[in-house]
Design a protein around this nucleic acid. Structure first.
Lengths: 219, 219, 219, 219
DNA sequence: CATGAATGAGTGTTCATTCAT
DNA sequence: GATGAATGAACACTCATTCAT
């Protein structure tokens, strides 16, 4: 639970996180043993505990790394353009590529949050909140261009998009049809323009939006 | 005459599944002990094993029930109308209400699939496939009305929508702002009409669709 | 531990003992479950306990029956002649046939004595002692004829012979070479005349050897 | 300098086997719990499993040791002479002394063979076969001297003798009358010359009988 | 600095036995 | 008289963690 890493030999720390990430993704945190992680990192359980005081600590470190890498990947991905709408598209692509191809830490962050011990949850939640705020910023800028519909609830929209994109990790298999980038781009068009033909859009659709999407009363 | 108040066999089975569902949802399958399930179901571990031969069997039974209940809930939900597009909307609502309010079995089916033992995976996958096929049917009928855009990949669209809606379960907290039905309806408009204003839709968007959404080769 | 059989429906009692004997012989008492016995006797564990108060009781009943049947079999076997030495030979034959072909109760008596609960050991030991005394009687009568060597310790001789013959049950497989009767007769000649020095043997003994000890065909 | 007093790994392994041997002999494999073995070896169940992956593995290791020790003991015992017939006598003595006084592993090998898990049976059977072949070799050499009777089936003779001698372990109690060596020697004369017909015996044999077979002091 | 043998609390599961029907 | 659902103590075994070296 405490930050027990020693400064030197970061390569060993890294090996542990990589091994843990792979196993946590495949079998989940609780079903993975410290022995398995150690073995996959070519060491013994005692040596693993020398670097991370507990199995929980490995999870926390991995998740924190997940947030860091996600922010880094998306930041890098959107640097290619200044068009806020285009940045959304590139951001989705970067996020999904990281999630599907790059690294297991983002997957574990998203899909093993339950396994966090009580005490560490708040800290990781805060880190994760930073990533969400990062997306909110991108969305806000895109909205600000006036090209998006008004009356959209930012939080809900983020959850909608992130949900769709994160779910890909549950069914995507490498080398089967589409690349993550292609999937991300397809999803971006769904998000942007919807699935229905414009012709069929009922006239009163905007009023429905007003009704549905405005936050309908805080708790 | 004797059919009342007797804690019948099915009632005990049910109590186990309800207790297991709640715990699996909260902590995950692997982190939940048989003792906890038994205690939550007001029995002893031996009694639980009398009904389910193993902890794995409880998981499988719960997941199979998740599929059954989801199909039942959506079937009932869409019965109110014959309009295929409207049915999609009602179906989403029914699915999300079940996922967030009704029952933990659907949640466990979606979020603990990894925990299934090797041997049971195929069977549950088949059941789950039936539910997906059910949605594919609804989507296909909606497409058939001509109101939807052409060139959409059915499978990808389902994963897109189901991902967005299933993800709600990871952040939704009862009594905090929106009801599941409201969220589902909002998501339906996002799905149907997209997030961007129509005005801004680039002229070449349809050709992009052709490029992106048609299955792009590879095996 | 107590004698809980009810008088009627002895067929059910019998079915239990037969099933238990078979299982105890194959896997040992401790490795056999009451459920297995009950199932092999076409009943449920509750019904088994209705007839025998405990698993231990089944073992005791089975062993007592083993003694009874052994005495009966040998008594019947030796009735064909009055020659005490011949009676020894016939007795060995009867004992081994019962042990190998007839009944599992004698086998269990001999090879699962360790499993008897403290309280029942004495009783079964007494019964078993009756069978041993029965053999001592036969041996004594044979000795009394003057044809056996003097200075033989009766007890030691019995243990010698019974050991050799009982051990057959650990390696004998039905239908593989010799019948139990043939083995018993061969062993009788070993016992009677030893393995060494044919020169000093009575003339008529050698023809018996030829007949008995040459592998008598079969596969 | 550091090789003293350290409770080395092998010592712990040994303590486990000794404890297990004693318990398996007394109560049988299935009736002995891992906790009992661990306690008798002054450790906890977890520590026992650190050394032997399963209870079955303890049994297998014990049996393999039984074979090894039996071969070693008999080999050592027969080294005193080159007379093949005398070697048989010394071999019997060594075997019975090991079985009754030395070590529980040979007893367990002989009397808990049923408890071997399916997968390990073949391996132990092969080891055991080596010991039997060892005896067959001794028997064959004794036969080769021409002093034994012809027409004896080697396998049957071995089973006869081994049965008689192994059975001793079921009734022998230390300090009650005869030593294992005395019993073995008595059994050797039974085996060699049989129980009947003193008239035909070589002259010097009878003095042996007097010496060996008279009860040598009650307890 | 790193190890790996050892630990013991806790896991999923078994099973002889009970008892309401 | 006979059943079978239910029990709970006990089972073999696991595993995160410790600590002497």
């Amino acid at each position: 639970m405490t930050n027990a890493q020693v400064p030197s030999s970061e390569a060993a720390d890294e090996r542990i996180l990589v091994a843990a990430g792979k196993l946590f993704r495949e079998k989940g945190f609780a079903a993975t043993t410290v022995r398995e992680i150690a073995q996959a990192a070519s060491m013994l359980p005692g040596s693993l505990h020398y670097r991370y005081a507990s199995k929980d600590d490995v999870l926390v470190a991995l998740m924190e790394r997940g947030v860091r890498r996600a922010i880094a990947a998306v930041t890098k991905g959107i640097a290619a353009t200044r068009d806020p709408v285009e940045r959304l598209k590139l951001g989705l692509r970067a996020h999904l590529e990281l999630l599907c191809q790059g690294d297991d830490s983002l997957y574990v962050l998203l899909y093993d949050f339950r396994s966090l011990p009580e005490g560490a949850r708040e800290g990781v939640e805060r880190s994760r909140g930073r990533y969400e705020a990062f997306w909110d910023g991108m969305l806000y800028e895109a909205w600000g261009t006036g090209r998006s519909r008004s009356a959209l609830d930012l939080d809900l929209v983020r959850q909608f998009g992130m949900g769709a994109i994160n779910w890909v990790a549950t069914w995507y298999r490498p080398g089967s049809g589409r690349t993550p980038a292609q999937i991300a781009d397809a999803f971006w068009t769904y998000l942007a323009f919807g699935l229905m033909g414009e012709a069929s859009r009922p006239a009163d659709v905007e009023s429905q939006f007003q009704e549905l999407l405005t936050k309908s009363g805080e708790e």
